[in-house]
Design a protein around this nucleic acid. Structure first.
Lengths: 205, 205
DNA sequence: TAGATTGTTAATCGATTAACAATC
DNA sequence: TAGATTGTTAATCGATTAACAATC
């Protein structure tokens, strides 16, 4: 185990390990190995062992990894061993689909509010949330001390909304706008860009 | 210019260059430089020049790059200089939001059909498409010779649907299911996984 | 014990960057 | 011309992998 800073590419693989463990568990397995994970995830087994070894010794020689134990450890490492509250900005088709998306809650991400500034959207019910005006944003974020936001607004206003969110204390942004945001170094942004994904696949076609 | 195979990480940056060029163009610029792109994209200028140099010499010493010309070249390299037809499988909240998504069409990705196998969804109008049964999938894909699919189905059926798509000739899959698909090496898959993105950001929080 | 698999080291491989000649 | 910026080389940096002692 090392206490050196661990690279971003390693951190980005941890959620995939976690996901695969849940998968194997659902298949009835209680123990796995770097070899098995390797085959299922298409990473080398050496890479998987090395990635895990940055954080501790989670396996047993000759046996492998206890799935439940490793899951628990990975959740702690990623800080997803407890719930996080999330605000969502943008109540267009995408924003509303994200409220209905069933994938966040089981992983501990609770959408607590949705905002928009189009008058005709304010007051609209989406799932079990009600669309609020952007002027309510500071109150909600501050009172609940929310650190995470999902940005589902048009790219023209994305930077401006991001600035406001950061000002209010948001430190992680899942950005659905097709734009590279400029943010301070202590703010993390993860981009979801289906078009860029499509375009890079076209190269090989 | 080299004709060696170009790495995946380079290819993945090309759409970001393309996007930024469009952005700069909208700001009224006609010429840019690796330096300017560097500042706006947070890559080093050397990296940008090197990435582009794999494909040709697109700039002028002392001047920089003509935005329109570079855009055109990048589109050719990525094979996005013409339209592509795309089929969408899954007419849940996500699938329907993707039909309404305004980002695909301007980049030449035309959604030509949407499929689902839930009887209550068949015949439903979504945007200007009508949800068809999965049994129609082979006919549509084959007659239009579609090569690209978006997979917006639950993870339990994602692998099975992917297998069917590949069998029909699909060669690029944009996968919204939280699962690592196993596919032949000549099929490209790009994953969109907001939860994994969230989780890796949590590490830094 | 024999077999299996970890954690880790050192070697390899690949990607990024610094620097600069070429040249617009 | 003088100033600026490309395209490219060589050096550096970082990530992946092969291999194996340790050990369950």
């Amino acid at each position: 185990m090392a206490t050196q800073p661990v690279s971003d590419v390693v951190i980005n693989r941890l959620p995939l390990y976690l996901r695969m463990l849940t998968f194997l568990q659902r298949e009835g397995k209680t123990i796995t190995s770097s070899q098995e994970l390797s085959e299922r995830l298409d990473f080398s087994s050496a890479q998987i062992r090395k990635d895990l070894s940055y954080f501790g010794e989670f396996g047993k020689q000759g046996t492998g990894y206890n799935i439940e134990y490793l899951q628990k450890q990975l959740r702690q490492i990623l800080h997803v061993d407890h719930d996080w509250e999330v605000v969502l900005v943008g109540a267009g088709d995408l924003g509303r689909a994200l409220v209905h998306y069933q994938g966040f809650a089981p992983q501990g991400f609770k959408l607590v509010a949705i905002f928009d500034n189009a008058p005709q959207k304010i007051g609209m019910t989406v799932g079990d949330l009600v669309v609020q005006t952007m002027t309510e944003l500071p109150r909600v974020v501050r009172s609940k001390n929310v650190r995470i936001a999902i940005l589902a607004v048009p790219e023209e206003v994305a930077q401006q909304v991001a600035d406001e969110l950061i000002e209010l204390g948001i430190r992680a942004i899942l950005c659905y706008a097709s734009i590279t945001l400029s943010v301070p170094s202590d703010v993390k942004v993860h981009y979801i860009d289906p078009v860029a994904g499509m375009q890079s696949m076209m190269y090989y076609l």
